[in-house]
């Protein structure tokens, strides 16, 4: 095409944009690690004293301080911590007497599978609710869905969980109120015991995601190009799918990533209630026992997962945008 021959190929611009986003996410993660390290090191009192208790002698405390590296400057400790995190070995839990890596090990897998199943359920439900609401914007159905989702996003997870337990475990005795995950359990047993945690988590996440999806699509509905398409006689369903979705893809994907981050907060409560052996309940225990190395590691895993979600949504949105590809 005349006048465009000199331009660099489109993929170059896109890959440059993607590379920029990846770098920015990595920088953010680095800064997050600083924040978490600083916050966790501001422990009032002495971590070594904390581990040993009040009865310990000054020599014992000093020895442990040395072993924990607390007598070295903060910058050195941060550098060591960061490099050991990067090597996949985030230190030693003095409270549990185990390496943090072993503590996290299988629990991470459990949490990821809980989150994965919930995400799958939520995305499908939320897209459906969000699109149905947007297409029927202003109609009775939309207004009803609005009030329902609005109420659900304001529900504390523990309310939903306790109500579900009361109904399904206590009254109906259909599902267990404790999620047992073991090697011996059959698939069916695992599914049964995970049903309630997944349902509780999905409830809140779906409502949030559906609202954000609806908002992203509804924003586009007022654009002049939508009116133009209607005046061309294009049916509304087709307008939403073929005219609006390419434009709303970015915001919708972002909405999903943001809502999935609710999973992490939700998991803290849900895993604890159902005694689900995941990373979130481990983290709650780490706070109770003030196990800082474990807590830091858990926090970093969650932050990394969150940033990864946002990054993936960003990249997919870039790749889906024809204006950037063309």
């Amino acid at each position: 095409m005349p006048g465009q021959a000199a331009n660099p190929p489109a993929w170059l611009g896109v890959s440059r944009l993607v590379a920029k986003r990846v770098l920015s996410a990595l920088l953010t993660l680095l800064l997050v690690s600083v924040v978490i390290f600083v916050a966790a090191s501001l422990l009032p009192g002495d971590a070594a004293q904390e581990v040993l208790g009040q009865s310990a002698t000054a020599e014992q405390v000093a020895a442990l301080r040395h072993e924990m590296g607390l007598d070295r400057p903060a910058v050195t400790r941060y550098a060591d911590w960061l490099t050991s995190m990067l090597r996949g070995d985030p230190g030693w839990s003095y409270i549990a007497g185990m390496s943090v890596r072993d503590l996290i090990g299988t629990r991470l897998v459990n949490t990821l599978s809980l989150a994965g199943v919930t995400a799958l359920v939520s995305v499908v439900l939320a897209m459906t609710i969000g699109l149905v609401s947007a297409i029927n914007r202003g109609a009775r159905l939309d207004r009803a869905l609005n009030v329902v989702t609005l109420s659900l996003v304001a529900m504390p997870e523990f309310l939903i969980a306790t109500v579900f337990v009361l109904i399904f475990s206590v009254k109906l005795v259909w599902l267990p109120s404790i999620a047992m995950i073991s090697e011996e359990a059959t698939w069916g047993e695992t599914l049964r015991s995970c049903a309630l945690p997944v349902a509780c988590l999905a409830f809140v996440v779906t409502a949030q995601m559906a609202r954000l999806t609806r908002a992203a699509v509804a924003d586009e509905l007022d654009r002049p190009y939508v009116e133009m398409a209607r005046l061309k006689g294009v049916p509304l369903r087709r307008i939403v799918l073929f005219h609006i979705m390419p434009n709303a893809a970015g915001p919708v994907l972002n909405a999903m990533a943001l809502s999935l981050s609710y999973l992490m907060g939700g998991a803290l409560v849900i895993e604890t209630i159902f005694s689900y052996p995941g990373l979130a309940s481990l983290m709650v225990n780490a706070v109770t026992s003030r196990d800082m190395p474990l807590l830091q590691a858990c926090a970093m895993v969650f932050c990394a997962a969150y940033l990864a979600l946002i990054l993936i949504a960003d990249i997919v949105a870039i790749l889906a945008n024809p204006r950037l590809r063309a």
Binding site: V35, I36, A40, S41, G265, L268, F302, L307
Partner: peptide, 22 residues
Amino acid sequence: RAMDTLISIPSKIFSLVLVAAF
């Protein structure tokens, strides 16, 4: 940039770290 960093720590996770510390 600083605010972007803080906002990318999920709120409940951040609150646990802060409660444990303070």
